[in-house]
């Protein structure tokens, strides 16, 4: 899996209310949620972001609510991956479950700047800042999470196991 895109930067502790404010949670329609993605952190984000772009943020990304609307909004807005030093645990789980690639890498999160072109090799976890030529190595994805990705997410994974049983 290769991911390539332009970077949008955000700070530490980007919470789920910034990612998708609760006032929009009366729907779970991805296209509707995408319109308000990151609205309270950057009101213009949804109109600026292009398909394939990458979010690079500070620590504890996705803290707060369990709302899966958060990774859904990010993915539906066209964002191809999120890089941060750490993720809140429910967001981390949700991202894998619904297929938003995320990478834990404190060095990349610190060094990469807004507007840079970045390429991520999802298999090896190598993050390359194409603007500066620097490369970084993300934390390896735990084997169980890899098996989820290989099966296409949590639901295909459990359905496969169910069929085999």
């Amino acid at each position: 899996m290769k991911i390539k895109g332009k970077v949008w930067k955000f700070g530490d502790n980007i919470d789920t209310d910034l990612i998708i404010p609760a006032r929009y949670l009366n729907t779970s329609d991805p296209a509707e949620l995408a319109k308000h993605c990151m609205e309270d952190a950057d009101p213009a984000f949804a109109s600026k972001v292009s398909k394939g772009d990458i979010i690079v943020a500070g620590k504890n990304f996705g803290c707060g609510s369990s709302r899966e609307h958060a990774p859904i909004a990010i993915k539906a807005a066209g964002v191809s991956a999120v890089v941060a030093p750490s993720f809140a645990r429910i967001f981390y789980r949700n991202a894998f479950n619904m297929g938003l690639p995320i990478f834990e890498c404190p060095e990349a999160a610190a060094a990469i700047e807004e507007g840079h072109e970045v390429e991520i090799d999802g298999d090896t976890g190598t993050i390359t800042d194409l603007t500066t030529g620097e490369t970084f190595k993300a934390q390896p994805i735990p084997p169980f999470m890899q098996s989820l990705i290989a099966d296409g997410g949590l639901i295909p994974h459990i359905m496969k196991k169910r069929k085999a049983a």
């Binding site: 709302r67 990774p71 429910i90 949700n94």
Partner: peptide
């Protein structure tokens, strides 16, 4: 719901997950 951790007060291992985990 992220505040599912409330029931830890009863001595339950109780935690928030997303909707996909709930469906599973």
């Amino acid at each position: 719901d992220s505040h599912t951790c409330t029931y830890g007060a009863l001595g339950a291992f109780s935690t928030g997950v997303g909707s996909t985990d709930l469906a599973a």
